[in-house]
Amino acid sequence: MKLKSNIAISENGFMFDPYTGDSYNLNNTGVEIIKHLKAGKTNEEILAELKQKYDVDDLSLEQNLYDFIAMLSHYDLLENA
């Protein structure tokens, strides 16, 4: 998965998509995932990073990450593969 380039995100969770003019509001975990995506990490790498940092079980994390990525895709924020 790759985030569209030029998408700007602030530390406070405000995200702006310059292609569409839409704005988004993310929580901390969401911001973190976006940063990982911007850095070009794979889903597996992101899962590993988060697992190490947070108190969460593997399956919930996996379920949540794929749901989040599905939302990014729904909002058309990902590069088409």
């Binding site: 988004y24 509001n25 975990t29 969401g30 919930s60 909002y75």
Partner: peptide
């Protein structure tokens, strides 16, 4: 010690519709 986990969330901000506040 691991940090408290919160599910990642993204909400679209709709013009004219207040979100957080």
């Amino acid at each position: 010690e691991k940090l408290r986990y919160e599910r990642p969330i993204i909400n679209k901000i709709k013009a004219g519709v207040p979100d957080k506040y």
